[in-house]
Design a protein around this nucleic acid. Structure first.
Lengths: 230, 230
DNA sequence: TGTACATCAGTGAACGCGCGTTCACTGATGTAC
DNA sequence: TGTACATCAGTGAACGCGCGTTCACTGATGTAC
């Protein structure tokens, strides 16, 4: 019950971290679907069953990696948003977009784990939902700040009654003061952004452009304009 | 050398088709990464090595499935484009978008095979590239028709010199007469469309809306507007 | 400070599973004369 | 029309692999008195 950690506790925390780090390394190398508990144990120089002292099994390991990855990307986007806090909303958006793209290219397998085909036989538990919403939440928050400052152009967007209802409900959930149209366009921007990154990473744009980065640059600006950010 | 097919030839073609059909069925059930040559053989009531008479191995089987799936989606979009040939470009676009979404929801694992995480250890051979470009080509063709008919709004789009160069080169490749801006916005629309469908299918929008279809409807219209289709 | 007991990290062996691919073979189908 | 040979679809057995998970165990660390 003391705050002093015993040697055992310290060792435990350390090895827990080492397992995660090794799993992360292997994820980066072979991808999620080829990630194996046995291989992690092997690399750590430990018998496979030993890992069970720390994780309930392979699924628990993957869940931990998903959470970690969502948080890593979330931190990246937060940093981009914070660093550009004094810039115009349009510039903030493109800064965040760049951050997402750069992270994705630096961590393709982590990105695939989050935004690619769901791992077969694995059902994401509730624990991963909250970190998974960090990026869209932050994007929305930045747009909401811009809106509050009068920096989002009004722009007529045709929406069905059903959509308006869905979007209004969502606004209540995220607790933001935003016109339904702006929320809608921001969601479009969010999906557009990740659609682009996914296409790039999964080779759908293969050979389309010699310089993907340049096109992405203009694309993220175009998205900011579409949303109406000034 | 005769055009009359021997019994052997007919049997061969039939079994080739049966293997593919079984593989397709299993793909739909368990997904690409869990697709197993042995399981296919088992379901066909044949010994695993027998499949090698028809396909060079698991990768060849997957390649065939990818090609098939691209063509199935390509046909679907072509049909949507043809069926809406007399409508306004804006309506054609949303019709095609709906077709993509409907097909994806009806064939989630096929969709994942095409647009999800690349299958680990599998390198898509050149054969799959051509069918893989059918959809974007057709989308572009429809926009080009609209442009020729004066049904695409001019709209200033800021593009870097590098992007303009890339896009101009692409225009030459696809052999279309289209302003660079319109090409750019169409590509954005294409990625946006698939970004939406992917997010929906891979559960990124989980619990965001009660009625995804309604929002998608408005989204595809918004994309058509963004492109400038009348 | 020293002893007796409880905790728990890591071992080692095993279970049961499925996979892709190879290879020598049998026996039916097709072909040439 | 009938025979001899060539082709080739499918068999059966095997190779070698790796996987996740379980369980009884040993021995070191921690705790209570």
């Amino acid at each position: 019950m003391s705050t002093v950690r015993t040697a055992r506790e310290r060792a435990r925390a350390e090895i827990h971290a080492e397992i995660l780090a090794t799993a992360r390394r292997q994820l980066a190398e072979v991808g999620a679907s080829a990630l194996s508990l046995r291989a992690v144990a092997r690399e750590l120089g430990v018998v496979p069953s030993a890992v069970y002292r720390y994780f309930d099994g392979r699924d628990a390991l993957i869940t931990a990696l998903i959470t970690e990855a969502y948080d890593a990307l979330g931190d990246t986007v937060d940093r981009a948003a914070d660093a550009s806090a004094r810039r115009r909303p349009r510039g903030r958006w493109t800064t965040m977009a760049q951050a997402v793209r750069t992270w994705a290219h630096a961590h393709p397998h982590e990105y695939a784990l989050l935004y690619g085909t769901p791992v077969p036989g694995y059902a994401a538990p509730v624990d991963t939902v909250a970190p998974g919403t960090r990026v869209p939440r932050r994007l929305l928050a930045v747009v909401a700040e811009a809106h509050a400052a009068g920096d989002v152009e009004a722009r007529p967007t045709s929406l069905s009654a059903a959509s308006r209802r869905e979007l209004a409900a969502l606004l209540v959930t995220v607790e933001l003061d935003l016109p339904v149209d702006v929320l809608f366009r921001t969601i479009l921007g969010w999906t557009q952004l990740f659609g682009l990154v996914t296409f790039e990473l999964f080779n759908q744009t293969r050979g389309m452009f010699g310089d993907d980065a340049a096109v992405f640059d203009d694309a993220s600006t175009a998205i900011a304009d579409m949303i109406g950010l000034r």
